[in-house]
Design a protein around this nucleic acid. Sequence first.
DNA 1: GTGGTCTAGACCACT
DNA 2: GTGGTCTAGACCACC
Lengths: 119, 119, 119, 119
Amino acid sequence: MDFNNSIPIYMQIINELKKDIITGKLSPGEKLPSTRELAIKYSINPNTSGRIYKEMEREEITFTKRGLGTFVTESESKIEQIRNDMAKDLINDFVKGMTELGYTNEMLISIIKKESEEK
Amino acid sequence: MDFNNSIPIYMQIINELKKDIITGKLSPGEKLPSTRELAIKYSINPNTSGRIYKEMEREEITFTKRGLGTFVTESESKIEQIRNDMAKDLINDFVKGMTELGYTNEMLISIIKKESEEK
Amino acid sequence: MDFNNSIPIYMQIINELKKDIITGKLSPGEKLPSTRELAIKYSINPNTSGRIYKEMEREEITFTKRGLGTFVTESESKIEQIRNDMAKDLINDFVKGMTELGYTNEMLISIIKKESEEK
Amino acid sequence: MDFNNSIPIYMQIINELKKDIITGKLSPGEKLPSTRELAIKYSINPNTSGRIYKEMEREEITFTKRGLGTFVTESESKIEQIRNDMAKDLINDFVKGMTELGYTNEMLISIIKKESEEK
DNA sequence: GTGGTCTAGACCACT
DNA sequence: GTGGTCTAGACCACC
């Protein structure tokens, strides 16, 4: 994790975990590492791991079984919704930003096409 | 202008000014409002305006004539470079973010096409 | 520390800290005093300490771990580069300045030799 | 002149003029341009030219004949003294600065020798 | 009038 | 406790 960054560490890790869930690296219902394990894995303070799970639970991405740990939500539709929300944010930021810079819709399409070919 | 709380006000205004320069609303060599005027315009503290101009000068977007004021850079290539840098950041964030979410290049193209038609 | 009036205090302290880093009084990776401690040490305002650390971070002399503090860069090559940059500036100012005053290279050498013997 | 510089414009021009006097480009007793001419030559405000001559007169580098203009001092020893003062400042800044960076006297001599050979 | 610096004091999110 | 941001108000040199 990049401590030297304007994005809070807990946010950076939440995004990592969300991506792992969306791409299937973490399956629905799978147990997540304990707060202590997470703290060690990312060399962060256990308080910060706690905050990560609290926030993810608030967003209903995970749920907690007392005494057992934290688990990925079992709702596939919830996971799909997260993917859509994250995608929508990315799309909006991109289109809005480029438009403000004076790029037309045609330019956007050709830029993305070119980007795709290069990879 | 109403400010997004999570991004510092001075950053938001810098981005506004950058966009104004890129889109030609502010011409190369043009004088910017004085720190005091800017403070009134955006209802911010003059210190904050000062910080804005200092940061922009550091990025060579503007230059200062002592005792006279702050001016937009006269280098058209610098302005072009800023536009390209900002666009490249937007493109990278978008493509990288979407790819991490599992979207293919073809999907990106069709998403952008669809977005364009809606507007 | 007493401050030279014509140079901003924050600049003078930055130069002090740079020298401490270059001469090894501050080691790579070492934690710097907190902004509040620095403010007390030099009897300056905490705002001014903050500015010092922000500027040094911009120059990549230090880095910040959010919520933990400010640390000397761990890159030895960066430190070496800072030393070389500062030395190069001093050398250029000296040679350029003396040449403009009509001193020849031979005179420079003998002046420096004489200076060395006196100390 | 470089307006975008932490050194005040009037200081920059005074230094230019001092160098011209020291190197003989301006002879003892020679008439300097009028404040208006100076203002045009350097595209500065006439107030600034006035300040330049006032400051140089205070340092006894120039003198004024009412209604006739401003002239370079006729004292050769004064000119020699200015040269020595400027040189002494340059030498001190250099030796003090390099010593603080950890350079030894031997290193200074070899650096200056190397610089001389390159030119 | 212009930007630059500094103090004082406050609030904030993050670890 | 850590740095980051902001306001308020002051003073300064420079043009």
